[in-house]
Computed example of a mutant assay.
Amino acid sequence: MLDLHRTFDKQKKALFFLLALCVLGWFFTPYPTIFSGIGIGAIFGTYNFWILVRRMDKFDRSYRDGKRSVSLGSGLRFASAVAAVAIPISLPNYFNVVSSVIGLMIPYIFLFIEALYSLMKTRK
């Protein structure tokens, strides 16, 4: 479980870097809605990953104690993803829907890259 926390810490750092790039893109390019959509999607995606980390901790504790865990928070993460898309749909002048969906997937892409990096590191 410590690896998941380490990965989440790395993702938070990458999120701040990505948000800085989105702010620069929002100010200095003619596509502010795309960069704001990526930013809001990445924020909700990181929130979803935080929920997953928190629920995995709870699951590990309940498994260690011999209790049953109810869920891993799929409903809450799904509702958060719906909110990440509902905001751009309701405010199309400020956010792009497609870029917010792409931004929602960015933390999972970071997770995949981190897993590949970890795999390559252990093979050496």
Rank of each mutant, 00 (worst) to 15 (best):
R61T: 03
R6G: 04
I51Q: 04
I34G: 01
Y108C: 08
P92F: 03
K13F: 07
I89D: 02
Q11V: 01
L76R: 13
S118Q: 01
G39I: 06
F35A: 00
G75L: 14
A81D: 00
R55A: 12
N93H: 12
I51T: 06
R77N: 12
Y31K: 13
A81T: 00
I38S: 02
S36R: 14
F95S: 03
G75M: 10
L21R: 12
L21Q: 06
R68I: 14
F8E: 00
A14L: 15
F59K: 09
F17V: 15
G103C: 08
A83R: 05
W50E: 10
Y47C: 12
V98E: 13
L2E: 13
F95T: 03
Y63V: 14
F44T: 05
A20N: 03
A81G: 02
R77I: 15
Q11T: 04
S71R: 13
L119C: 00
Y108K: 07
I102M: 01
P107W: 02
M105D: 06
K67Q: 13
G103D: 11
S90H: 05
I113G: 04
I109L: 08
P32Y: 04
L104C: 03
P30A: 09
R68F: 11
F16R: 04
A42W: 06
H5P: 00
D57T: 13
Y47K: 08
S100R: 07
I87G: 05
I113E: 09
D3G: 04
L15G: 07
D3K: 06
L2W: 05
G103S: 09
S80A: 15
G75Q: 10
L2T: 12
F28D: 04
A84L: 09
W26C: 14
M105W: 01
F17I: 15
F49M: 12
F35L: 01
L24E: 05
Y47R: 04
V70S: 13
P32I: 06
F28W: 14
I40C: 12
N48D: 14
G73S: 01
L111E: 15
I106K: 00
I113T: 11
L104G: 07
S69T: 15
R6I: 12
L116Y: 09
K58A: 06
V70T: 13
G75R: 09
K12T: 09
K10H: 10
D3H: 08
L104R: 02
Y94P: 01
V53M: 10
G103Y: 04
M120T: 01
G45S: 10
R64H: 07
Q11D: 08
G75I: 08
S71K: 10
F44G: 03
M120N: 07
